[in-house]
Write a protein that binds this DNA or RNA. Structure first.
Lengths: 108, 108
DNA sequence: CCGCAATATACCTACTTCGTTATATGGTAA
DNA sequence: TTACCATATAACGAAGTAGGTATATTGCGG
């Protein structure tokens, strides 16, 4: 197991995790599970403002988590690869395992 | 694959990713790979300020990423489980795969 | 050409977060 | 008890970020 990440690499890793660290962006990634979507679809689906959705998409794209494809007036975004979902699923599994007992106790 | 995360769960997932979204905290988690460490060791090892290290540890602990153990004057922190490292490794692998060609091409 | 539709960007405000210094808490030893 | 050590917390300023409105860009149709 190599421990040879440069500070720049470390910053890049942090950038990606930070991009995943917003509920709004997680919702957008979840919406993209079914396949690519145009910005307007994401706006409609999430109920968020247009400028806000666009900015979040830039952040996700800068982090390499989503890909872009222009087609006429529309821009379609898609998950960059399967690992993005893998990360989310691992984290969600942790949440579900820890949240379930809480919910039973009414701690939520 | 269930898509039944409540908004509260979504916020919890985001909280955890956000906790991973800081280079300083990633360095601390990396330092904990070898096993539990006292706060003063982390301070010494990372060169960060004492108050800063303590605050970052509270964030990691609140996110459930590290565990605590008090022993006399010392408090030892350790990785909460193996999945924490799994997440980091997945992300690091992505970085290494994407960073290497960039470096060769001088695109960075 | 003009006007419109989809997306991106600039700008602003409120809020959060990082890092530091100073102080408080808890535990140990003399 | 008092002094000291390790850790936590408070308080502060600087910097970043989310979300909104307004505006710019880009591509299409008339």
């Amino acid at each position: 197991m190599k421990r040879t990440l440069t500070p720049a690499d470390l910053a890049r890793v942090a950038e990606r995790f930070k991009a995943l660290g917003e509920p709004a962006r997680l919702r957008m990634l979840d919406a993209l599970r079914g396949g690519e979507m145009a910005v307007s679809e994401l706006i409609d689906l999430t109920g968020m403002g247009q400028a806000n959705v666009s900015k979040h998409l830039q952040i996700l794209h800068a982090a390499g988590l989503v890909s872009r494809r222009k087609e006429g007036l529309f821009v379609f975004y898609a998950l960059a690869d399967r690992e993005v979902l893998l990360l989310c699923d691992i984290m969600c599994d942790r949440i579900e395992r820890q949240a379930d007992p809480d919910r039973l106790l009414g701690t939520a």
